[in-house]
Amino acid sequence: MFIELRLYATLRRYLPDRKAGEWHRLSLGERATVDEALAALGVPTRQELQVFVNDQAVELDHELREGDRVGVFPQVGGGGPDADR
C-alpha cells in the first residue's frame, strides 16, 4: 500500500529531497504501523514524537491504511530567552 508522509522541524533531514509543500509517497506492506513507516525512513522513534494520521493524533503502533496522510512532529524547543546559548 501507499501512504503519504511529511516530517517536520528536526525530522526534515530524513526526507532531504522533499520539496516544500509536497507529501512524500511511501510504499509499505499491508497493515504496516506508523513506527514501521518511520523505521523505513530511518527516523529514530526513541524520541518523543507526535504523530497525526489524517490530522488526528495517534500512537506509534497505529495501523495505517492505503492513502493515509501522516504528519510527524518532534518536540521543538526554540522561541525565547536562551536561544543563543
Partner: peptide, 27 residues
Amino acid sequence: LFPRPPEPGMIPSCAEGGVLGALPGVI
C-alpha cells in the same frame, strides 16, 4: 502531546539549528 522530554542534545537550539527571523513573529 509530549509526555517525556527529549534526550539531552537531541533537539538543537536555535543557535545550533538557526531560525528565520520573521518566524517567531508569525508564531
